[in-house]
Write a protein that binds this DNA or RNA. Structure first.
Length: 369
DNA sequence: TCTGGGGTCCTAGGACCC
DNA sequence: TCTGGGGTCCTAGGACCC
């Protein structure tokens, strides 16, 4: 979806259409927070998502700052996904404003290169929500994602296998989903800037620099190769609640506020888990200090839980293990190793006698030479 | 008085067990 | 004057994504 949060706000505030708009924090750009989405008019001033609100004001004083309204974005998110599902039901959720769609078995895909189907999806999304989106059609998720970024907003880009050299190789390596700021900087330090340069690099060199797994993966994706399936459902692994304070808290002088916040986050998290009927066995806390250093501590319980008292108790035990030597900017609680409520507890590992396979000879583990 | 919140996956070391 | 090898679980940190 194009500038999703900003575009949703403009549906309610047509008076702001054409003006620079940024969504972030509580809508007050003098307070702590970042821009989550900037309208294209705001982007023209250099306002970008992830940028400090205060910095955005400096770049664009006339920018309108609106508070983040997750419930409304969630509502429009459901609508656009339903509109897509009516055309192509095999959809992988990639967050609130993005999906992968498997078009390979959709009737009509054989008639052209996917352009007509993608145009139909764009039309239906707009009809259902009033919002525009950008679509990339390609042989795999890696290329589709890059393609969807080539023409924005309201774009439609087809990338075939034979187009990789012409359309993909000139792009910066950073455009690959999975190459972030750190990997990009290291690539640049060895003279690799574009995807084409990455493709031309011997895989052994990448393995030497980035390790076997990541190095080989880089070589594959640089050639446009990706065989990940479109995954239509996955169980959640963890859930967390965290908050950044308006001012950095002193670990002793502001202890009351720190403790009250942790307790309140634990209560919220327990409520969210219970509402979704999940329980988890590992409870953790996360702190961000004023120097932006992050520490985590976690604790695995004998039994999975969504109980507020147990989560809070474990969270405070974790917090007690953190050396509090600086002011604290953020605190959060997480429950991981989630399972559905009522699912059988992970029992102690059972010892099962190995059954000799009839297909394979019963080989000794070591050659007794 | 720059830098949110909610996730996933990977790595690496130590404990522990057989 | 010795102390292997393999597997799993737990913990902590880090990169990356939306």
């Amino acid at each position: 979806m194009d500038a999703f949060y900003a575009s949703v706000e403009l549906l309610r505030r047509p008076d702001l259409v054409g003006r620079p708009v940024a969504i972030g924090g509580r809508g007050d750009p003098t307070r702590r927070g970042v821009v989550t989405t900037a309208s294209y008019e705001a982007r023209a001033f250099g306002v970008r998502s992830g940028m400090a609100l205060r910095h955005a004001v400096e770049l664009c004083p006339q920018c309108v700052f609106l508070p983040f309204d997750f419930d409304e974005y969630r509502r429009l998110s459901r609508r656009f996904k339903e509109a897509i599902a009516a055309v192509a039901p095999t959809i992988e959720d990639r967050g609130i404003d993005e999906v992968y769609i498997d078009l390979s078995h959709v009737p009509g895909i054989a008639d052209d290169d996917g352009r007509a189907l993608a145009a139909e999806i764009k039309r239906r999304v707009h009809e259902a929500t009033g919002l525009s989106c950008s679509i990339g059609v390609a042989p795999n998720k890696l290329l589709a994602k890059i393609a969807s970024d080539l023409d924005k907003p309201d774009g439609l880009t087809i990338v075939r296998e034979q187009d990789v050299e012409r359309l993909i190789w000139p792009l910066p390596a950073r455009r690959i989903n999975g190459i972030g700021p750190k990997a990009d900087a290291r690539l640049a330090s060895i003279g690799i800037h574009t995807i084409g340069e990455l493709a031309a690099t011997a895989p052994e060199r990448l393995v030497a620099e980035f390790g076997a797994s990541y190095g080989r993966w880089m070589h594959q994706v640089a050639h446009g190769r990706d065989d990940r399936p479109v995954v239509t459902f996955s169980e959640p692994k963890s859930r967390s609640c965290e908050t950044t304070f308006d001012r950095d808290l002193h670990p002793r002088r502001d202890w009351q506020e720190l403790a009250a916040t942790l307790a309140s986050l634990a209560r919220r998290l327990a409520g969210e888990l219970q509402a979704r009927r999940y329980v988890g066995r590992t409870i953790g806390v996360k702190l961000r200090f004023d120097d932006f250093r992050i520490v985590t501590r976690d604790l695995t319980l004998p039994q999975a839980t969504a109980d507020v008292v147990q989560i809070r108790k474990a969270a405070f035990e974790c917090l007690a293990r953190v050396p509090l030597d600086r002011r604290i900017r953020l605190i959060g609680v997480r429950v991981s190793a989630l399972v559905r409520e009522g699912s059988p507890p992970a029992s102690a590992p059972r010892r099962v006698a190995p059954v000799p396979s009839p297909d394979e000879p019963d080989l000794p583990l070591f050659d007794p030479v």
